[in-house]
Every structure is written in structure tokens, then in C-alpha cells.
Design a protein around this nucleic acid. Sequence first.
DNA 1: CCATAAACTGACCGTACGTTCAGTTGACTG
DNA 2: CAGTCAACTGAACGTACGGTCAGTTTATGG
Lengths: 201, 201
Amino acid sequence: MTKEEVIKEFRVREILEAARRVMARYGMQGTTVDRVAEEAKIAKGTIYLYFLSKDELVHAAVLEGLREMVAETVRSDDPSKPPLERIRNLILAQYRIQASNQDFLKTLIIGNSLDIELESQAGRDYMRVYAGHLDFVASVLQDAIDRGAIRPIDSQFAAFMLGEMLTGSLRRRLLKLASTPLESEAEAVVELFLDGVRTIP
Amino acid sequence: MTKEEVIKEFRVREILEAARRVMARYGMQGTTVDRVAEEAKIAKGTIYLYFLSKDELVHAAVLEGLREMVAETVRSDDPSKPPLERIRNLILAQYRIQASNQDFLKTLIIGNSLDIELESQAGRDYMRVYAGHLDFVASVLQDAIDRGAIRPIDSQFAAFMLGEMLTGSLRRRLLKLASTPLESEAEAVVELFLDGVRTIP
DNA sequence: CCATAAACTGACCGTACGTTCAGTTGACTG
DNA sequence: CAGTCAACTGAACGTACGGTCAGTTTATGG
């Protein structure tokens, strides 16, 4: 990589980080190019040297944020552990990751979310990252199925539902509907996912 | 109610329905006062005779949509049925309701959602409707707990999680990640919620 | 059938914000 | 040190859209 490329990548990263900070603070609606420029301490015009449009900038910022969280999830996994422990660790890791990205996630979850046009390039980019995440979780669940720790359900379905439960759990806290501390909430999700609500006969 | 009030209520309803149709078709971002006026076949100015601002209009339209769905949920319940059957019926009813409001829900779930400011009047209105829904589901679950059909978990927590699973299920279809037919997906959610994923010993 | 008022219209206004570009800065080179 | 060029700046532009209001239509009631 040449010196110019390094500098350019650094600038891009700076702008993306500024964009995410603005998004976290003002919500998607309140994220303007002026504010991002101010936050990054550069002129508005400079942003257009690195991004074609505001849309491209926002999509890139969100995409990078999601990619980092997915990578962190994969990193937290220890495949040598027993299946049920891996699942439990996965859930606890998600809680940790969510907690350290709360402000950013807030705008995605209860603020003005993105205008996802599934057929657009941006939509496909998001779906690729998301599908990658789902595949990873599903593979952990499939391993648990193969080892007889959980029932032979559709692992993609279960992976998606687990993700929804975790997002939901964060949403519950953001909406101030949860009074329980984080750890017990995480354990409650583990229990609900593994054993459901029915009385064990 | 006087004749004028009846007419006024009719107009308000017409405008709100037009707003929901526009929201369903163009997403939250693409919903402009001009488009709502065109859809309702009235002039833009007329809308401002019935609503103070675009925000008020949009919030009223969404709120009414949510209220109708909550009412439909309550209506579908038959309290004389056994607890587990009530829960199952609740889930199946949600699938039916979601299906008949798909376009509207799409903008709320994967399109540009609302800018919910929790501390605003609109935010409190949404939360009241949502809390009412949660209380109803929680009461059904609490009844099942009291009768020993499900374990003594936090019914508010379980009600919220069930809601997230159902919303998630719709999102999965909207994102085209689900290939299974609606009924089997509903049954899979019933099974997951009741028994979890763990192998029954 | 006219008088009055309420309901409605749509051209117009102001503003916020994405985008552009002519001018400026500053780093590198010969 | 002068020349060159890429990086950067921010004032200015265009436009989309929320909101307004003077004028027109429609309804009412005597």
C-alpha cells in the first residue's frame, strides 16, 4: 500500500467514525452532512472527495459498524467448548457487544432506521453481512444438533429467532421496559431459548 | 354527536387511511404531505384543517394502525380455552393479523421507521398502546402460570420476547430469508416458545 | 334566491440540506 | 525557491417539501 492510500484510508475511517458518532447522537433523521463534517473537523466539501453521496456515506458507516460486531461475535466463540456452553457464551457475548455499541444500535433499533431497499446495492451489502452472521450462529447450533445437545430443528430458523430475541432484549431496555439487571436478563434469554416456557413434565 | 362532528371524523379517517396507504407504498421517507393529499383526493391545505403538522398526521396514522391490530389480538382470544391452547391461538392470530397488514408493517419493520422520541407526547402514546398489548399477552401467560401449564417465569419478559419472535418471523419473510410456508413457520414459533431447542431428556 | 359562513383549494413562501466548484493552502520536487 | 498539483475549503446553488393564506366553492338557513 502506498503512502497516499494509507492516508486516504485513514481519512475515510475518520469520516466514518464521525458519521457513526453523529448518528448515535442525533439519530438517522438528524444526521446531516454538515454535522458529520463538523464532527470530523473538516469542510463539507472534503467529504465528497471520499464519498459520492450522503447515502453512500451513511451506508458505509453502518455497514462497517455491523461488520465489526459480527467479527467480534465470531472472535468470542471457542469451538472446543461443549455445544450448550458455546450457545450460552454466544448469547452472553452478544450482550457484551450490544452494551458497548448501545448508542449506535439505538438509532438502528428504535430511532429512524435505514431505508433499506432490498434490491439496491446497499441492501445487498447489508444482507451479505447479516447472512454471514446468521450462517455462523447456525453452524454453532448445527454442531449442537449433531452432538445431540439440541433437537434437530431448522438451524437457520433458530439462529434468526435467537438474534431477534437478543435484539428484542436490547430494545426492551432502550424502551425502559426492563428493570432487571443485564446479567439476569441474559440468563433469562439463555433459559427461554434452551427450554421454552412449558412446565417440564 | 352532531352532523358536523360525524363529517369531521369521516374526513379524518379518510386522510389517515390515505396516509397509511402512502406509507405502505413509498415508505416513511417517501411519505410527503403532497402525496397523502393526492391519495386522499383533496388539496394539501385541507390536511392542515384537520392536523397541526405532518408529524401529527403520521403519528396518528401509525397509532390507529397499531390500535386496530391490538384490538384484533384481544378479540381473537377465547379465555375459556385451556392455557396452552390460548397461547397457541394467540400466536396463530398474530400471524393472521400480520399477514393482513403486511405492507403497512413493512415500512415499520424494515423501511424507515419512526423517529421515536420516548419523552415526546407521540412517544408516550405509542408506549401506552404497546404496553396495553404487552399487558394483555402477559395476562394470558400469567393465567397459564397460575394453572401450572408453564413455568413461573416473568410474564412481562416472556410476553415481550414472544412479540419479538413474532415480529422477527415477519421480518424474516420480508427479508426473503424464510422459504417455509406460513403455517409451519407459525407452528415452529409455538414449539420454540413452549419447549425451546434443548433435547428433551 | 340571496346572504353568510364554513370548507376547501393550490399557488406561493421559507427553509433545510445535499451537492458543487472556484478559489486557497500546503506539501513535494527539481 | 519557484512551480506544480493534489487536497481541502466553504460560500453559493438547486431543490424538495412542510406549511400558509388569499381567493373560490359549497352548504345552510331565513
